[in-house]
Each structure stands twice: as C-alpha cells, then as structure tokens.
Amino acid sequence: MEKFKNRWEITQNWQLIFPVIGVIALGYSSFKIANAIISKFGIATIVIVSILCFFLLLKFTLFLFKKLENKWILDQKWEMIRVFIVFAITGSSSMFIGRPIIKFVGITKENLNPIVYWFLFIIIGLIFYQILLVFFGWLFGQFQFFWNFEKKMLRRFGLGRFID
C-alpha cells in the first residue's frame, strides 16, 4: 500500500477515495461495455469480457496518465484521477441534461433530418459541457485547473474574446 501511495503522491488517507472511485467507475464501465456487446451470451461470458475490458481500459488510462502527466499542471499525481473523474461525470451529465432540453424545444429525429438533429444535439451537449465542466471542477476542488482548461478550449473555438 505504501508503494501505491508513493507512486500517486498520496499524503493523507482521504485522498485514497479518488483511486477507489476511479477503479469502481472503470469496473462499472467495463461491465456496461461488455453487457452491450455480448448480452446474449450469458452472465459468465459477460463477466469474463468485463474483466478483459477492465484491464484494457486500465492500461489505456494509465497510458493517458503518463502522457498527460507533464502537460497538465497539478500539485500531486492523484489529482489526475480527480480530473479524469470530473471529465467522466461532465460528459455523462451534459448528455443527460441535453436530451430532455432538446426534446422540450421540440427537436426530434422524427421531425428533422438526422444530420441536423445530431448536429444540434452535439451543439447543445457542448454548451452544457462547458458549464458543467467548471461546476464539477469546482465541486471536486479543481476549479482553477478547469477554468484554465475552459479558457483554452473557448479560445480554440474562436470565442476567446468573451472570456478575456
């Protein structure tokens, strides 16, 4: 356990909550992916594919950590887990909020061309994503990181004049 704490620069026990949440979320995602792909083959097959998917996602996530470790300015390595959790929650939440709003406005696949529908769906989801990213970043104690990330993203969209 001490080796794990040193690797992730965990100095206090409460910081262990983020790796635990990350592993649980990774396991849940693996199960959902496996269930979506092979739901007809029975629970034993789903569990085996879930475990395989879990290890593949874990390898990919650790690869991303290594690549982003020098790019993102964070105080400790464990904060990267917190940042990834914020990105995951924000992505899911923006779609969760965007769907009812797009239906409320009256935009459906039935009354619009599918290309126009998906374009509007992505635009509405992206608007909520920007707002929720800063909110969840603040909620998880990473406001400054996500505010800087947001400003950089808006500049890339050509909207930098609205934030300066």
Rank of each mutant, 00 (worst) to 15 (best):
R99A: 12
M95W: 05
V49M: 11
I89T: 02
F18D: 04
F65N: 07
I17C: 07
S93G: 12
K66M: 03
L26F: 07
S50P: 12
S94H: 06
M80E: 12
I21C: 08
M95A: 09
L68M: 10
A25T: 12
V47T: 14
K77D: 01
T90D: 03
K59T: 15
L56M: 11
Y28A: 14
P100F: 06
A44Q: 12
I89H: 02
G42F: 07
K40W: 13
F65K: 02
L26I: 07
N35R: 11
N70E: 13
F65I: 09
K71Y: 07
N35P: 04
F63A: 10
L52W: 06
F96R: 02
V49F: 13
T45G: 05
V47F: 12
S94V: 01
V49A: 13
K32W: 10
V20A: 13
I97K: 00
Q12L: 01
S94P: 08
I24T: 12
S30N: 07
S50W: 05
S39L: 10
L58I: 10
I10N: 02
I38C: 13
I21Y: 00
S92D: 11
F54C: 04
F87R: 06
L52I: 15
L57C: 12
A34E: 09
F96N: 04
G91E: 12
I102W: 01
S29G: 13
Q15G: 00
S93V: 07
V49W: 10
I46M: 04
N35M: 08
F60P: 06
